[in-house]
Amino acid sequence: KELVLALYDYQEKSPREVTMKKGDILTLLNSTNKDWWKVEVADRQGFVPAAYVKKL
C-alpha cells in the first residue's frame, strides 16, 4: 500500500474529510482526483487536499 506524508495540519470541514497533523503518515487509498486524495488515518477514511500531502 502507498503512504503519504502530511505536509501541513488540516482540519476537516465536512464528514467526508479527515483531520491530519503535519508529519502524520497516512495510507493513500485513491489519488485519481488531482485536488482531493482519499486517505486512511486512525481507522477513518476520508479526503484531504492533495497539495497538503506528499507521496513517500
Rank of each mutant, 00 (worst) to 15 (best):
residue 1 K to M: 12
residue 29 L to N: 03
residue 12 E to P: 14
residue 16 R to H: 13
residue 16 R to C: 14
residue 10 Y to V: 01
residue 17 E to P: 05
residue 41 V to I: 15
residue 31 S to K: 07
residue 36 W to F: 07
residue 46 G to L: 05
residue 27 T to G: 09
residue 42 A to T: 09
residue 34 K to V: 11
residue 38 K to G: 05
residue 47 F to D: 05
residue 41 V to N: 15
residue 29 L to R: 04
residue 39 V to D: 00
residue 14 S to M: 07
residue 55 K to V: 12
residue 7 L to Y: 04
residue 36 W to K: 03
residue 55 K to Q: 09
residue 47 F to A: 03
residue 7 L to F: 03
residue 26 L to V: 07
residue 32 T to Y: 10
residue 17 E to S: 06
residue 39 V to S: 00
residue 52 Y to D: 03
residue 55 K to N: 08
residue 6 A to K: 00
residue 45 Q to D: 09
residue 46 G to N: 01
residue 2 E to R: 11
residue 46 G to C: 03
residue 22 K to E: 07
residue 20 M to S: 01
residue 21 K to G: 06
residue 49 P to V: 02
residue 21 K to M: 10
residue 34 K to Y: 09
residue 53 V to E: 02
residue 54 K to R: 14
residue 27 T to L: 13
residue 29 L to M: 08
residue 34 K to A: 13
residue 54 K to M: 15
residue 38 K to T: 08
residue 29 L to P: 00
residue 29 L to K: 05
residue 54 K to C: 14
residue 9 D to K: 03
residue 27 T to Y: 13
residue 33 N to M: 09
residue 20 M to I: 14
residue 13 K to Q: 15
residue 12 E to L: 08
residue 44 R to I: 07
residue 31 S to W: 10
residue 7 L to I: 10
residue 56 L to S: 04
residue 38 K to F: 15
residue 27 T to P: 15
residue 49 P to Q: 02
residue 18 V to E: 01
residue 17 E to R: 05
residue 26 L to S: 02
residue 25 I to D: 00
residue 56 L to N: 04
residue 56 L to D: 04
residue 14 S to G: 13
residue 10 Y to W: 12
residue 15 P to V: 10
residue 42 A to D: 15
residue 24 D to I: 04
residue 26 L to N: 01
residue 7 L to N: 03
residue 36 W to Y: 08
residue 22 K to D: 02
residue 38 K to Q: 13
residue 54 K to F: 12
residue 38 K to N: 07
residue 24 D to G: 04
residue 25 I to H: 05
residue 44 R to M: 06
residue 18 V to F: 12
residue 2 E to L: 11
residue 14 S to T: 12
residue 31 S to M: 09
residue 17 E to Q: 10
residue 24 D to W: 12
residue 11 Q to R: 13
residue 32 T to L: 11
residue 35 D to V: 14
residue 13 K to A: 10
residue 44 R to L: 06
residue 18 V to R: 01
residue 40 E to K: 10
residue 21 K to H: 10
residue 52 Y to C: 10
residue 26 L to D: 00
residue 53 V to A: 04
residue 44 R to V: 07
residue 31 S to V: 07
residue 50 A to N: 03
residue 45 Q to Y: 08
residue 30 N to E: 15
residue 56 L to Q: 06
residue 44 R to N: 06
residue 55 K to I: 14
residue 34 K to W: 08
residue 26 L to W: 04
residue 41 V to E: 04
residue 46 G to W: 04
residue 7 L to R: 05
residue 40 E to Q: 15
residue 51 A to Q: 12
residue 11 Q to V: 14
residue 16 R to T: 12
residue 35 D to T: 14
residue 28 L to G: 01
residue 41 V to Y: 13
residue 8 Y to A: 12
residue 19 T to G: 10
residue 14 S to K: 08
residue 15 P to G: 10
residue 21 K to F: 12
residue 23 G to C: 08
residue 30 N to Y: 07
residue 6 A to L: 02
residue 6 A to R: 01
residue 43 D to A: 10
residue 28 L to Y: 02
residue 41 V to C: 11
residue 16 R to Q: 14
residue 4 V to E: 00
residue 4 V to C: 13
residue 23 G to N: 08
residue 4 V to G: 10
residue 31 S to A: 14
residue 29 L to E: 03
residue 33 N to I: 06
residue 4 V to T: 02
residue 24 D to R: 03
residue 54 K to H: 11
residue 23 G to Q: 03
residue 9 D to A: 07
residue 7 L to D: 01
residue 40 E to H: 07
residue 53 V to I: 08
residue 55 K to C: 09
residue 35 D to Q: 13
residue 6 A to C: 12
residue 11 Q to T: 15
residue 55 K to F: 09
residue 35 D to N: 14
residue 9 D to Y: 04
residue 12 E to F: 06
residue 4 V to I: 08
residue 37 W to K: 01
residue 39 V to H: 00
residue 48 V to F: 01
residue 39 V to I: 08
residue 9 D to L: 02
residue 2 E to I: 14
residue 5 L to R: 09
residue 56 L to H: 07
residue 16 R to V: 12
residue 4 V to Y: 07
residue 36 W to D: 01
residue 52 Y to V: 06
residue 26 L to H: 04
residue 51 A to D: 09
residue 1 K to C: 12
residue 35 D to P: 03
residue 10 Y to Q: 00
residue 50 A to L: 02
residue 5 L to S: 05
residue 36 W to T: 02
residue 56 L to V: 13
residue 27 T to E: 13
residue 8 Y to H: 13
residue 32 T to K: 12
residue 47 F to N: 04
residue 37 W to A: 04
residue 37 W to G: 00
residue 15 P to R: 11
residue 18 V to G: 02
residue 32 T to M: 10
residue 29 L to I: 15
residue 33 N to F: 08
residue 42 A to L: 14
residue 17 E to W: 03
residue 37 W to Q: 01
residue 52 Y to T: 07
residue 56 L to T: 07
residue 3 L to M: 12
residue 20 M to V: 09
residue 54 K to P: 02
residue 32 T to D: 15
residue 33 N to G: 11
residue 5 L to P: 00
residue 7 L to Q: 04
residue 1 K to I: 13
residue 18 V to S: 02
residue 45 Q to F: 08
residue 14 S to I: 04
residue 5 L to Q: 11
residue 43 D to Q: 10
residue 52 Y to G: 06
